[in-house]
Amino acid sequence: MRPRKPALRPGKPMVRRGVPVGSPFRLLLLGASFALTGYAGVRLLADDWFAVAVWFVGAALLHDLVLLPLYAVADRSVVRGLDATGHRDRALYVRVPAALSGLLLLVWFPLISGRVERRYRLGTGLSPDGFLARWLLITAVLFGAAALLLALRLRRATKQRPPATH
């Protein structure tokens, strides 16, 4: 059976009975860290503390409780779906292009979605129109390349297979 939890960590507990305190080194280090956090934090929160706190904590919650579960579930359903048809090994050919395309969308969402169109045109003097088309094009290339690789692999597998198995 695998250990569920490590018994010893780099800072092992000093106090073994009563309320465990933990390693004094770790406490000192975290104390110093929190002092700096506090110093910068009051300045970060000086203007609109509530909105900034929402952004700060919200970013972590949104990632951990929404984004990550979403892509994990999506990935698992792709793998399960392919598993059901006996092609579990083909998961990569869907996963890689989908993840790369999703990554680009995640990073460049303001430009791709056109939500900053007016400011972008006014600010840079550039056309805001190409981003969605370019992202779709990259996505098409990624999936196309994956399909091509899969086709090549299947063709090679067919050639290598002895005729008797046909």
Binding site: P13, P20, V21, G22, S23, R26, L27, L30, S33, T37
Partner: peptide, 14 residues
């Protein structure tokens, strides 16, 4: 599991 561990988890949120 301990005070230090609790503080470390708060630090991880930051």
């Amino acid at each position: 599991r301990s005070l230090a561990h609790a503080l470390e988890r708060i630090s991880l949120l930051l």
